[in-house]
Amino acid sequence: MKIIAVGMNYALHNKELGHTLVNKEPVIFMKPDSAILKDGKPFFIPDFSDEVHYETEVVVRICRLGKNIAPRFANRYYDAVTVGIDFTARDLQRKFREVGNPWELCKAFDNSAAIGTFVPLEQAGGDVQQLDFRMEIDGQEVQHGNTSDMLFKVDEIIAYVSRFMTLKIGDLLFTGTPAGVGPVQIGQHLQGYLGEDKLLDFYIR
């Protein structure tokens, strides 16, 4: 199982981080399976970063083996969705970018991919590009997005990625974060919602 993630996929998030470049293709990065954090287990802030940010995203689960998938058929290759968090060591990311180095280490560390309970896409409304999602910290909303605002749609991303690598059953696609990212602190309670369904619920330690 692999985790495929999309960066800079919401315009307002790009603006808040100062990204002015308009990407003509999806920005793709990977996380290892050791990045998965699930079942409500706590996230422990790593000792190598002083600024870990939450990035709330819709996560799509791949349900079929696929390679070189045409965009018009891409909807056949996923069956369930949830809310997840792409934890990012922002201080490391800035450091790596300044010298032009790859920044996997700030994104792919252990437990950096929190995922909630998956629900069938039909239960979530049926249209992957009309999903409303949000994140609350200690009961206060900090991020709110809708997949209709994606710069690159889910089917486009799947078609694009499958040109380079085979998608397998159980692979996960993190689809990008809207504006409102910020740092996490010990003791905080994070809850992620898809529509009115709470799918993600855990603490920062």
Results as ranks from 00 to 15, higher is better:
Met1Asp: 05
Ile3Ala: 03
Ala5His: 13
Met8Glu: 14
Tyr10Cys: 00
Tyr10Gly: 08
Leu12Ser: 04
Asn14His: 06
Glu16Tyr: 00
Leu17Asp: 08
His19Asp: 10
Leu21Val: 15
Val22Ala: 11
Glu25Gly: 11
Ile28Ala: 08
Ile28Cys: 11
Asp33Glu: 11
Ser34Phe: 07
Ile36Val: 08
Leu37Cys: 06
Lys38Trp: 14
Lys41Pro: 11
Pro42Glu: 04
Phe44Met: 15
Pro46Asp: 05
Pro46Val: 12
Pro46Asn: 05
Asp47Trp: 14
Phe48Ile: 02
Ser49Val: 02
Asp50Gly: 13
Asp50Ser: 13
Val52Ile: 15
Tyr54Ala: 10
Thr56Tyr: 00
Glu57Gln: 12
Glu57Ser: 00
Val60Leu: 09
Val60Ala: 08
Val60His: 07
Cys63Glu: 00
Arg64Leu: 10
Lys67Val: 01
Lys67Met: 05
Lys67Thr: 13
Lys67Phe: 09
Asn68Arg: 13
Asn68Asp: 05
Asn68His: 12
Ile69Gly: 11
Ile69Tyr: 10
Pro71Glu: 05
Arg72Tyr: 02
Phe73Pro: 09
Asn75Tyr: 11
Tyr77Gly: 05
Val81Met: 08
Val83Cys: 00
Asp86Leu: 07
Phe87Cys: 07
Phe87Tyr: 07
Phe87Lys: 12
Gln93Asn: 08
Arg94Met: 15
Lys95Val: 02
Lys95Arg: 14
Lys95His: 13
Glu98Gln: 14
Glu98Gly: 09
Val99Leu: 12
Asn101Gln: 14
Asn101Tyr: 14
Asn101Glu: 14
Glu104Lys: 08
Leu105Val: 15
Lys107Met: 06
Ala108Arg: 11
Ala108Trp: 02
Phe109Glu: 01
Ser112Asn: 10
Ala114Pro: 07
Ile115Gly: 03
Ile115Thr: 06
Gly116Phe: 02
Pro120Tyr: 07
Leu121Cys: 03
Ala124Gly: 01
Gly125His: 00
Gln129Leu: 03
Gln129Asp: 03
Gln130Ala: 15
Leu131Gln: 07
Asp132Thr: 12
Asp132Pro: 08
Phe133Tyr: 06
Phe133Pro: 06
Arg134Leu: 12
Met135Phe: 06
Gly139Gln: 10
Gln140Pro: 04
Gln140Thr: 13
Gln140Ala: 15
Glu141Tyr: 04
Val142Tyr: 11
Gln143Ala: 01
His144Gly: 00
Gly145Trp: 01
Ser148Ala: 14
Ser148Met: 13
Asp149Ile: 13
Met150Ser: 07
Leu151Asn: 02
Lys153Ser: 11
Val154Leu: 03
Asp155Glu: 12
Glu156Leu: 03
Ile157Gln: 02
Ile158Met: 04
Val161Ser: 04
Arg163Phe: 05
Phe164Arg: 12
Asp171Pro: 11
Leu173Glu: 01
Phe174Val: 05
Gly176Asn: 10
Gly176Val: 07
Thr177Gln: 08
Val181Trp: 07
Gly182Tyr: 04
Pro183Asn: 02
Val184Arg: 02
Gln185His: 15
Gly187His: 01
Gln188Arg: 11
Gln188Cys: 04
His189Asn: 13
His189Leu: 02
Leu190Thr: 09
Gly192Pro: 00
Gly192Leu: 12
Leu194Gln: 09
Leu194His: 08
Gly195Ser: 10
Gly195Phe: 04
Gly195Glu: 03
Gly195Met: 04
Gly195Ile: 09
Glu196Arg: 05
Asp201Ile: 07
Phe202Asp: 05
Phe202Ser: 06
Tyr203Ser: 14
Ile204Arg: 02
